[in-house]
């Protein structure tokens, strides 16, 4: 690893473009990383209706990328998980453009929160494989290591020093203490088990305290469901996508009045299944990074860690 003075790096990045500092305050409750790739409200197209001459459709231009400085490893990993949906099969051009333009400077997490459980997912607060550049704050300096080519490019022109053995030792000690502060939930085998639990009665118990607001899904860095709506003005209008939540009844309500997920029980089941069964089945990865945002934002203390423990305890017929 290399090292650099934080101020020097920041000056360099400021010159490069739109720098967004995430390192100064805890990013809560919303995930800036999610919003930077999948904004809560995003224009898809504008249209103008020219009498009988037809319709003119215009796709908005991109606004250029951002340098996100101080992204936590969990949030950077979350973007990788979003890629699985947005960059596979039919590529989502709006997402792709931001993904290509944004540069993620990941900062190892020295002080995990009590709600963190990232280590349950095979990585940790010091995992250096996400985002474009990995950094560790060792106090006087940043240890720094490009992860992608985009990351290397962002560092071009900077003089980096070699990290000394004592720097690395400092990092190791920070890492140990951070990892030690995190509670790991053992989720081994949960996705296979959930497949057999669709009709289990436990969902009603789990869903009892949930009031079906969208707080957990909106703060979640991996929840990506959206709605598409038109806004009409005289002779023109626009189509936009806005975040939606599987917790809302109208999310799945059909025009006929039929709702395949009529109560909070089915909706809770879908949310958990999506993250812990469907995502693993489709992509081999859990759709959760263990950042704990949903736990902190929940108005009724629905704790996903506790839910996973409960689900683990349920006995299912083989």
């Amino acid at each position: 690893m290399k090292k650099i003075e934080k101020e020097k790096l920041l000056r360099h990045l400021e010159e490069k473009g739109n720098l967004v500092r995430l390192d100064r305050a805890r990013q809560d409750p919303l995930s800036v990383t999610k919003s930077s790739h999948l904004p809560q409200e995003e224009l898809l197209l504008l249209f103008r209706i020219n009498g009988d001459k037809g319709v003119e459709i215009r796709v908005p231009e991109g606004r250029g990328g951002k340098i996100l400085f101080g992204v936590s490893p969990c949030e950077a990993r979350a973007v990788d998980l979003l890629d699985l949906t947005f960059l596979r099969d039919r590529i989502d051009p709006y997402y792709k453009r931001k993904r290509e333009d944004n540069v993620l400077f990941v900062l190892a997490c020295n002080k995990p929160r009590s709600t963190c459980f990232c280590t349950s997912f095979g990585y940790g607060p010091f995992s250096g494989k996400f985002g474009d550049v990995f950094m560790v704050d060792i106090g006087d300096n940043l240890l720094i290591d490009p992860v992608t080519e985009k990351g290397s490019k962002a560092l071009e022109g900077l003089e980096l020093e070699e990290a000394t053995p004592s720097d690395l030792e400092k990092m190791e000690s920070l890492k140990r203490s951070a990892e030690g502060a995190i509670t790991t939930v053992n989720i081994e085998g949960i996705s296979e088990k959930l497949k057999k639990m669709f009709l289990d009665e436990i969902w009603a118990d789990l869903a009892f305290k949930c009031v079906n607001c969208g707080a957990c899904t909106y703060v979640c860095p991996t929840c990506y469901c959206f709605d598409i709506q038109d806004v009409e003005r005289t002779n023109w209008g626009y189509r936009e996508r806005v975040w939606d939540s599987c917790m809302f009844p109208i999310y799945s309500l059909e025009t006929s009045g039929h709702n395949p997920r009529p109560t909070g029980v089915e909706r809770m089941r879908n949310r958990i299944m999506h993250k812990f069964s469907y995502y693993p089945e489709l992509y081999g990865e859990y759709g959760c990074v263990g950042c704990g945002r949903c736990i902190r934002a929940c108005p009724v203390n629905f704790d996903i860690r506790e839910a996973l423990e409960t689900l683990k305890e349920v006995e299912v017929a083989a």
Partner: peptide
């Protein structure tokens, strides 16, 4: 406001089957 409707859903008096905002 992020329109998560936590204020609506937690409210015991917001029991309408369908809300004007939807």
């Amino acid at each position: 406001c992020i329109r998560c409707y936590a204020c609506r859903e937690i409210c015991p008096m917001c029991y309408c089957e369908s809300c004007f905002v939807d």
